[in-house]
């Protein structure tokens, strides 16, 4: 999946100034950056929610040339928050994702998708009765039901996740990111907007850093999550450490240096 020279204007304000972005199947590509840097806008341009100039291709096809029903089996999108207007049950919500994909009518799929996000047995309950974190995971189950097979006929499927762990407890943050990781390991492509730098370093194969509507850096977590990046992009002085063993970068907010330029 590739995005070339993406520019997005919202109102009279330029949000993205010619962004080039690439994500590969089999990898988790994270987009990070401070508030207002344009990471969600970039994701929304790539999923067709914002008008853009430039070109976005998915599996070699220009997404502008694809109809919604041709795109739905190829990529599924998890929004930051989704409200549901009518009293649907959890199973009915997940089934709506299933209908958009190629998984057909398999009646066992909603239950399996729910079990995957640690919500086994929640199917008969009303969506509106669930907590925010549970609703978020129901939405992830819906998205998974849409692209249940990460790769088919050599064609990778794609998951676009916009801050998928924002309202979750720590255990379920891992559940959700494990799902994303497994999807990539099975040959699918994952593009995820993240806030938490430690989780990003743990789960991402590739990190793209956004700053003021431009790409500030791109590469492995080790190469991108650095002290220099934190100072230049976030304006925040913290030393980045390496976890023993795996060498994954991590940072402790307690190590923030104050009063130092």
């Amino acid at each position: 999946m590739q995005a070339k020279d993406i520019r997005v204007k919202i109102g009279r304000k330029d949000i993205l100034h010619g962004v080039n972005f690439r994500a590969e199947p089999g990898k988790v590509t994270a987009i990070i950056g401070p508030n207002g840097s344009g990471k969600s806008t970039l994701l929304k341009a790539m999923t067709g929610e914002h008008d853009y100039t430039g070109q976005i291709t998915l599996n070699g096809q220009d997404v502008r040339a694809l109809k919604p029903w041709q795109l739905a089996p190829l990529r599924a999108v998890l929004p930051q928050a989704a409200t549901v207007a009518f009293p649907y049950t959890v199973t009915e919500i997940v089934r709506m994702g299933q209908m958009g994909g190629l998984s057909g009518e398999d009646p066992t799929l909603p239950a399996r998708a729910l079990a995957r996000v640690d919500l086994a047995g929640f199917g008969p309950r009303f969506y509106s009765d669930l907590s925010g974190g549970e609703q978020q995971r129901v939405q992830l189950a819906r998205v998974l039901a849409q692209v249940w097979e990460p790769a088919d006929d050599g064609q990778p499927r794609w998951l676009f996740l916009d801050e998928p762990v924002a309202s979750l407890d720590i255990a379920h943050q891992f559940t959700v990111l494990d799902v994303a990781r497994d999807f990539a390991l099975a040959g699918g492509g994952v593009v995820v907007v993240m806030h938490d730098l430690n989780l990003t370093a743990m789960f991402a194969d590739k990190v793209t850093v956004m700053h003021k509507g431009r790409i500030a850096a791109s590469g492995s977590p080790v190469d991108t999550i650095t002290r220099g990046l934190l100072e230049d992009v976030y304006g925040c002085s913290i030393d980045v450490s390496r976890a023993p063993g795996k060498g994954v970068p991590f940072l402790l907010p307690q190590m923030r240096e104050t009063g130092v330029t």
Binding site: E49, A72, A76, P79, G100
Partner: peptide
């Protein structure tokens, strides 16, 4: 009918599950 079902989760989600909103 399917389009209206999708719209109950918002226009963006409806679009993503393959509906011509």
């Amino acid at each position: 009918a399917r389009g209206l079902n999708g719209l109950s989760m918002g226009e963006a989600v409806a679009h993503h599950i393959g509906i011509n909103v």
